[in-house]
């Protein structure tokens, strides 16, 4: 059994179906990307995991047993829309949230000291939250999310509002957390960050899960069998040489070398292609086009919507 499992969960609000028979298996130590267009049902699923709402049907398992009320102490959640008390001092506020997560005041103080030193923000302790910039507030919120050493972390758009330097810092921290054994559910619309940190993704559209798998498998699944070849030499009658097994999508001639984009047809292999080109031209580079997560996302969702 996986570390965290969602089994056939459905949920509807009045006339609106938020989740239809969704199942997820999240392994320990994974960074699990939860993707989907706005309004697909991601937030509802996250709320079910956090036990903010209960599913109409289906089950949720944590660490091999049904999810219990006390498990919220093992979960850290950074919501997409997040805020803190503007007029409360940063330190007091962090202590308050830590105590709500079951930490004693002493433990909370100790851990907060560690994190505040790590992020070099000790000077903020006695400042009111409203005196901080948005990025600074996000940092405080991040600390509050991870402070109680949760086994499962849920980050919903964690990088919004961060400058590139701080976003990178945060990314490193998230990867550190994984190194230390935490399991992470990562929800975002930023597909490049998904490629950077996710091991596994699930895509939800219109309340249903439409894609689930290891990030490489998913991308491989949506490969278009297209190759970019850069070569030197004259190769004007290329289409004749390649024949009907290949299709030339694009052919550009430059000063020193030429570029051609070729699509395999009829299940031909890479070697077949190389063998056809090699006798006639000097190959500078040969690369397969792997779709980006962005392309996969758009393609899968659009196909699903048709």
């Amino acid at each position: 059994m996986s570390f965290f499992e969602v089994q056939n969960v459905s949920k509807s609000y009045a006339a609106h179906r938020a989740l239809t028979d969704v199942s997820l298996n999240i392994e320990q130590g994974q960074v699990f990307g939860l993707l989907g267009p706005n309004g697909a049902g991601k937030t509802t699923l996250i709320r079910i995991i956090n036990q903010i709402t209960a599913p109409d049907s289906g089950k949720v398992f944590f660490d091999g047993r049904p999810l219990r009320a006390n498990d919220i102490y093992q979960i850290g959640y950074l919501p997409e829309e997040r805020g803190l008390y503007k007029k409360m001092k940063v330190g007091e506020q962090a202590l308050y949230l830590a105590q709500l997560k079951g930490l004693s005041r002493r433990d909370a103080l100790k851990k907060l000291k560690y994190w505040f030193e790590k992020f070099e923000i000790q000077a903020w302790w006695d400042k009111k939250l409203q005196e901080l910039s948005k990025g600074m507030q996000q940092k405080v919120q991040f600390i509050c999310t991870v402070l109680h050493d949760p086994k499962l972390l849920i980050f919903d758009e964690p990088f919004s509002g961060f400058d590139p330097i701080n976003a990178n810092l945060l990314k490193q921290e998230i990867l550190n957390l994984r190194e230390n054994g935490a399991t992470i559910i990562f929800s975002t619309h930023n597909m490049s960050s998904v490629e950077e940190i996710c091991d596994h993704i699930a895509l939800i559209n219109k309340s249903k899960k439409i894609l689930d798998g290891n990030i490489f498998d998913v991308k491989a699944q949506y490969k278009t069998e297209t190759f970019d070849v850069v070569y030197k030499g004259d190769f004007r009658n290329m289409d004749k040489v390649l024949g009907t097994d290949f299709k030339i999508l694009n052919h550009t001639e430059r000063e020193h070398f030429n570029e051609v984009t070729i699509k395999h047809l009829n299940g031909t292999s890479n070697n077949d292609l190389l063998m056809k080109i090699a006798p006639l031209a000097e190959i500078v580079s040969f690369s397969e086009r792997i779709p980006s997560m962005n392309e996969v996302f758009i393609r899968v969702v659009e196909e699903n919507n048709q």
């Binding site: 903010i52 979960i75 959640y77 997040r82 805020g83 709500l100 997560k101």
Partner: peptide
């Protein structure tokens, strides 16, 4: 201020 979103999971 969406404070409730943060607290509601605790």
């Amino acid at each position: 201020n969406r404070i409730v979103e943060v607290i509601i999971s605790s």
